[in-house]
Design a binder for these strands. Structure first.
Length: 95
DNA sequence: GTTATGACTCCAG
DNA sequence: ACTGGAGCCATAA
């Protein structure tokens, strides 16, 4: 089981209408936040990468800023230009 | 084995 | 609240 699978499962485990931070993923797989983002990028387009946001709720800076659009389309609680991480933050999948 | 890079986060100003 | 700099781990060359 590679960390990539772990991340992929976590990202897929995030219910619609909620998001998860890179730091949360990094903590779950026991690695640094730097690698967390890298793994999510490697997931490809087959996973809801847009549900993964920064620790302060800002969406990923990639995809030419398409993430906010996806978040809004997913009925994610947003606060201005950032996600309302306070409300949308997904809890741990509880292994 | 070493160097360079990346979808991050934290601390200080 | 915003900006800038440093740290970190893994993969690729």
């Amino acid at each position: 089981m590679s960390s990539l699978d772990e991340v992929r499962r976590i990202v897929h485990d995030v219910p619609r209408g909620q998001v998860i931070t890179y730091g949360e993923i990094a903590a779950l797989i026991q690695t640094s936040p730097r690698h967390a983002g890298r793994l999510v990028s490697q997931l490809g387009d087959g996973s809801p990468w847009w549900r993964v946001v920064y620790s302060d709720g800002s969406p990923a800076t990639c995809h030419n800023g398409a993430a906010p659009s996806m978040l809004a389309h997913e009925a994610i609680p947003m606060c201005g230009d950032r996600v309302d991480i306070r409300r949308a933050r997904a809890h741990r999948p509880k292994a």
